[in-house]
Write a protein that binds this DNA or RNA. Sequence first.
RNA 1: GCGGCCGUAGUCUAGUCUGGUAGGACGCCGGCCUGCCACGCCGGAGGACCCGGGUUCAAAUCCCGGCGGCCGCACCA
Length: 581
Amino acid sequence: MMSKADKVFSLARRRGFFWPAYEIYGGVSGFYVWGPYGVLLKRKIRDLWRELFVYNLGFFEIDSPTISPYIVFEASGHVEGFKDVMVTCKSCGKKFRADTLLKEKGVEVEEGLKPEEYLDLINREGIKCPSCGGSLGDPDYFMTMFKTTIGPYSDAIGFLRPETAQGMFVEFKRIYEVFRKRFPIGIAQIGRGFRNEISPRQGVIRLREFDMMEVEYFFDPENDDQFDLDEYMDETLNILHEKLIREGGGEYETLTVKEILERGIVEHKSMLYFMVLAQRFLEILGIPKSRQRFREKLEGERAHYARKVFDQEVLLDKWGWVEVSGHADRTNYDLSRHAKYSGEEIAVERLLPEPKTVYIREAYPEPKKIKEQYPDKIGLVMKELSRYSPSELYKILDENGSIEVDDVKLDKSFFRIVEEEKRVTVEKFIPHVVEPSFGLDRITYAVLEYSYTERGDRVVLSLPAYIAPIEAAVYPLLDRDDLKGVAASIVRDLEMAGFRVFYDYGDSIGRLYARGDEIGIPVAFTVDLRSLNDDTVTVRDRDSWRQYRIEINRVVEFVERLVEGESFESIASSMGLESVD
RNA sequence: GCGGCCGUAGUCUAGUCUGGUAGGACGCCGGCCUGCCACGCCGGAGGACCCGGGUUCAAAUCCCGGCGGCCGCACCA
């Protein structure tokens, strides 16, 4: 018995939704091609996501490079966090992380040891394979980011981004300026990410190169109420939170938004808002709420940058619960790290509830005076002094009476001293970030799996009409020039209205319908001999196979209403169409 | 990366154990049938049997290596 996944993969390959890449060279796992219909389907899903998560929320999108210099992912913590030293057992072949292996044996391990150092430790402690007792091979790095070189100099190492998020963090300062310091800010990015997975084997579910749709919502954690959850208070979510998992349950509980807030399961309102939206997004795509859940990630499962994470999961036939989006509280980790590594101040201002008085005590060097006294040293002295902030300089001068740089002793007279009281009404802080992050390829696959139905021995892809890659089909009942002429003019009408139309002929009508059903075309118009006399055609529903007679000049309206979400039967009855038996 | 199973026209597959240079179905092309749910009939094209090496007079078939797939282990930050 074929699993549903196997059937979907077979259909996808046969009809051109997706297939393994580089097939003529034997294929490379982790890389897939999205074919003609797959691209159209993905685009519709992406556009719907844009409506929900970008435009409707007043957010904007950016498009940053996929390749970054080394320092970006050093700052983000990925270089450290993505690189583990692994050892492989020589006899049973199992792989272990060197650090956890040693820690389990009670050996103290420092952070960031090199493979050779691990080798010494393993030999000294006589560590054997915990699984079979065999001897262990040489430890080696395993890094899941793709590395490349930038320009012709091999020492300029670059990385292919493992997430689009860093682009939004790195560019935050400019974005903040562009929006003239409006705050909070939501930024989205849709694009490719790259992860050099060890052994991806679930087709389009685990790719080495994949499309991500991410929002970084920058906000003030002390004032997180941009989103109004009131209208969603009674909406329910299936949630498998930490407490349930710890109590040993694999079963989620269904809670209302109100309960989730009251029990503090999700702290940030914005995060919960995105989760509710994510659930609706998938429902609109045809994946019922009952097949979705949010699973909290436990301590060890979370990425290094996240304080709290809920994965939105969808129940798939073959693989069980599979993550399709992640909702992470990234705190101010990323921005503060980039601030530190770049030396730039990355902060926004917050209005204080009460103005407060601060005492400013600063010392600014006076280059002219220093130059008069030490004309030869001025350059060096100024350079050294610039290492200190004005307030640090004040402090040193205040405590020591002078400051010594490079054999030059400068007392207060070489500085302009500022001592004043100031009323401040704002304070600076580094924004916190809540991130909903979606895997477009997985979502597209899930949509295909949930749309896949069989009718007898035929396959029908019951995609919602508003995401169907092809909106309508037009067929002549018979392979005759007069009928084909009428069909061609209906095709033109629909194309002029902006629809993609599938036109086919020459085979039996059943065969034509069957092909259209497999690529999910929601509606078909068939030109027959009667059409030549009364300018009507039959309109056929993909899912029920019901047919009505419709005037040719109303065909475009019918399709328009269908892709706006109205049901086939509702349109037929409100148009007063004659049923065909 | 380890273990098990697998790789034959576009697709699914028979043949592999017991070596003798490939057969079917669907699809595709042409013709008839003018038929509203993969209609029926006739004809046709399409295959160095995943790649490389070995054994043999002879390899899709046996042996070794590689690549790829599925399942399990590990991994999935």
